[in-house]
Design a protein around this nucleic acid. Sequence first.
DNA 1: TATTGTTATACTCTATAACTATA
DNA 2: TATAGTTATAGAGTATAACAATA
Lengths: 167, 167
Amino acid sequence: MNSMAPEAPDGALLPVPGLDYGVLDELLGYSLRRAQSALYLDFHRATASFDISPPRFAALVLVSRNAGLRQQQLAEAMGLHRSGALRLTDWLQERGWVERRADPADARAWGLHLTATGRAALRQLEQAVRAHDAALMHALGPTAGAMKSELERLARIANAAAQADQP
Amino acid sequence: MNSMAPEAPDGALLPVPGLDYGVLDELLGYSLRRAQSALYLDFHRATASFDISPPRFAALVLVSRNAGLRQQQLAEAMGLHRSGALRLTDWLQERGWVERRADPADARAWGLHLTATGRAALRQLEQAVRAHDAALMHALGPTAGAMKSELERLARIANAAAQADQP
DNA sequence: TATTGTTATACTCTATAACTATA
DNA sequence: TATAGTTATAGAGTATAACAATA
């Protein structure tokens, strides 16, 4: 294996015949985890020629579509602490894909911008990721669109539940 | 915050109004990621009084339902490298929830067993996790069962896609 | 030779805490 | 006083590689 991509799990999170999964088999959450694991492995396969990961890809897209984005905004968009957005930005900048420019409106902040190299990388990556996703939706068949909507609804429901007892 | 639970993400992976998500909004994979993020946060909230995480809970359930499980089998069931199963087992053993006993059939292997403390912890945890999951399924409404089946189908499809070009 | 487990190491992804500069 | 970013540190969750003991 000579890919430089981040380490993927060693194997699939598939039910092993003969093992008793107890409550796990009854949980919606565990089904979601199994699906997430499988999609992550396939994302990894589809982007194996790039040194990328889902959060790195998402950050690249967000910067490309929102030129001048600040690190704090990137953190909010990705559900991260600001220190996490900083590390992600460092990584993208080291690869020459993103640059920090002074923000004219606030001397504390950086505006993030794609470089020409970053735009070229994103063009290729986006094609690979779109193909990977389209293949999955095609294999799912006519219910794929409904599934995507239901996942969005589930995300809203679970976010509301998670925040219900936070201050 | 005085929970000892592992660090949860700082915030929700929710769409931020005014930001352009580009291709991300079109991807089934990103919808799944948003749902997974929200469920993870809610799992964390539901188990905040325990020092637990989804993989630790899954490992505890697997050991409880398959007494004498070997570390290698735990790794396979969870899609991990054997070194990951070792660390998970170390963690469960340090807390006194699981013990390693000599495997009578193979002197290289350990058989993993729940302790009385582990059984008591699992009883409480399983109750909290079941309640968390049932609340989500209830909020989803009559389509919840179908959603779970569709997630299982998606996992099978994506696993097949991921393995299609592996040797 | 192949398998089980261990040790040592490394990298990603996340956090917290204490700090600086600016608002 | 609050916010944007940085630095230093930590820990979970993964991996790889080299090793010992056993099959």
